[in-house]
Design a protein around this nucleic acid. Sequence first.
DNA 1: TTGACAGTTGAAGTACGCTTCAAGTCAAGG
DNA 2: CCTTGACTTGAAGCGTACTTCAACTGTCAA
Lengths: 144, 144
Amino acid sequence: MAEQDLIGISEVAHATGLQSSALRYYERAGLISPAGREGGRRQYDTSVLNRLAAIALLQEAGFTLAEVRQALGAGNDAWRTLARQKLGELDAHMARVASAKELLVSALRCDCSGLDTCELVSTRRGRHRTVVQKLSTPGRDEYL
Amino acid sequence: MAEQDLIGISEVAHATGLQSSALRYYERAGLISPAGREGGRRQYDTSVLNRLAAIALLQEAGFTLAEVRQALGAGNDAWRTLARQKLGELDAHMARVASAKELLVSALRCDCSGLDTCELVSTRRGRHRTVVQKLSTPGRDEYL
DNA sequence: TTGACAGTTGAAGTACGCTTCAAGTCAAGG
DNA sequence: CCTTGACTTGAAGCGTACTTCAACTGTCAA
């Protein structure tokens, strides 16, 4: 009794919502690897599902696949370092997007005729930092 | 006295932070166009700066350039319709990113050894919707 | 034996937003 | 006249994350 809970690529695909082609791609990218082969076909350990969950998480947090690889590949604490960095960038990114969103919402309520002739938009430089500050952007050292 | 406040491409580039190549690209994409040419060189009306501000805004809000083109190209109120749509998508996107961020922060505080072996991550399906709901996601008809 | 079928491979294609490159043009200054 | 420097063009290249394609292989059931 050795090879239990091994699953094929399409099962992994179905379980994760990814396509088989994406899983092969991830393999080439060094993100995952099958536990073995059976008649040439990849057989995955179910633990790959956890790994794929981690990959998806990091991707949503703005990691590129190369960065994901670094984070999951290196020592146990490597991901923490990278994550703290990325979280900073993520805060900045979210602030910018939120700022854009707020401005767009304001413009929707404005009686301007076109976006590019809207004063709210053209006046943007210099005073929309206010919106950024209203958001709860954590301090520099918030993430441990 | 006819051609006043016309500026060259590098001035536009400098004023906006975009590269000249990007401005030419935007032109090919139908987003902007010079007021005229002088010895073959593009001469822009300063109003292009407002337009570029609008373009940048929409881009930050998640519009592709093709969508920006639609929004700024069609009738005066076309952008409002598109903006309302996009704002919905944007809320969804931001919620997902925020959820990922929260989970990552939790994992940072967790004593797990690796991200892919972290219970917080592998248990994700089913109960992280809580985080999404904590965020102020506007109701379906919040935007007008 | 013979299909059918799921999977395999490497190579090429797709989408997006630009940048880079080679080759040429134009106006001004020495 | 000739160089310099900013600009022009079309075409190709880049980075990211995949998908698609063609050709092939292995397993199973009829």
